[in-house]
Simulated assay, not measured.
Amino acid sequence: MSLSAVIRKDVQDSVRSGALLASTLLFVLVAGFWAAIQHVPPIYGESDIPTSTLALLNSMGQPMAFFVPLLGLDIAYNSIVGERESGSIKLALGLPNSRRDIVFGKFIGRSIVLAVAILTAFLVVAVIALLTYESFAAVEFVLYTVMTVFYGLVYVAIGIGFSSTVNSQPTALAGATGLYVLFQLGWDAVTAVLQTVTVGWVPPESGPPDWVVLVYVLNPTAAMEYATQAIIPEFDAITAYPASDAFYLQEWVGFPILAAWLLLPLGFGYRTFARMEIR
């Protein structure tokens, strides 16, 4: 048994448990609903960008921002600690598997599950757009699909890394919940407090200080917005974030931030799991 065997077993377990089917159906329902309503925020009604393109990007932005992190953490947080508590991790390590195989095999396996869910849902969205939209921005759609998968893998990595470091499933669940709240609500609250303390509730025309903006961009969700804007300029029409001339706050900075959020939790989780005593 090797890394490929761990990946294969993890995907098969997800299929047998219904996790793959449930994840796919949920994402299809959420993404399909938002695509079907073709919503364009009123403030952007006068944009030069075709209404159908704005509707498409906005519709995809709704499930992406909130549902992808939830799904990524949900399928990953229990992946390793659950097997430790059940004792099955001993069997896996008794075979010719290293702890690195376990951590990275779980990451790849759960990433495949999430990618299948996202790609299936976006295929349904593409059909809806082709049948009901006045036009279909195919290039933008493909780029946004790739970015959404990448964004999902970041949260799978965070979940796997966290699962590798804790000792119980309740702790893993509480941690995953806390991380979701932090990234979706807490981070913006901290940024708002920093802005209020430094320049007031209403920022000056020049915008908040660059260091406050940097704190905001370090959130994976904000980094995703920046990275998407770098490759899909039309996305700027439905994305509001502070502008800055600082080189480290340009759109491209979203990519290294997302890469760091993917690699660092996995690396830390593996190092911790490698030293952990398995009882």
Rank of each mutant, 00 (worst) to 15 (best):
T198C: 00
V213P: 00
Y216K: 09
V215E: 04
V190H: 08
G200Y: 14
F183R: 04
V202F: 14
A189T: 10
L185C: 09
P204L: 04
V197F: 06
Q195I: 01
S206L: 14
Q184P: 12
E205V: 05
F183M: 10
G186C: 06
A192L: 13
V197R: 07
D210K: 00
G207D: 05
Q195R: 13
W201R: 12
V212C: 00
L218M: 13
Q184S: 12
T196N: 08
G186I: 01
T198L: 09
V190Q: 08
Q184T: 15
L218T: 06
A192E: 11
Y216M: 09
L194W: 02
P208A: 00
V215Q: 06
V197Q: 08
G186K: 02
P203Q: 11
V193H: 04
S206D: 11
Y216I: 02
W211S: 04
T196P: 00
P208E: 00
G207T: 00
P204F: 06
W211E: 03
T198Y: 07
L218I: 06
Q195E: 05
L214N: 04
D188N: 14
Q195K: 11
V215L: 10
Q195N: 11
V217Y: 13
G200R: 10
V202Y: 14
Q184G: 09
A192W: 09
W211F: 05
A189K: 11
G207L: 06
S206W: 14
T196W: 09
W201M: 12
V217I: 15
Q184L: 15
Y216R: 10
D188M: 12
P209I: 01
V215C: 04
T198A: 12
F183Q: 05
A192H: 07
V190M: 12
V197W: 06
V199F: 07
P208G: 01
Q195F: 04
V212S: 04
S206I: 05
V199G: 01
V190K: 05
Q184I: 15
L214R: 07
G186V: 05
W211D: 02
L214K: 10
T198Q: 09
E205R: 15
A192S: 12
L218D: 05
L218K: 06
G186W: 10
Q195C: 04
L185H: 11
P209K: 02
A192K: 08
V197A: 08
F183Y: 09
V202Q: 14
V190I: 15
V213R: 08
P204M: 04
V202E: 14
L218P: 02
T191W: 11
L218Q: 07
E205I: 08
S206G: 08
V190P: 07
V190C: 07
L194G: 01
G186A: 03
P208Y: 00
D188S: 13
V215N: 03
E205Y: 15
V193F: 09
V197T: 05
P209A: 03
V197M: 08
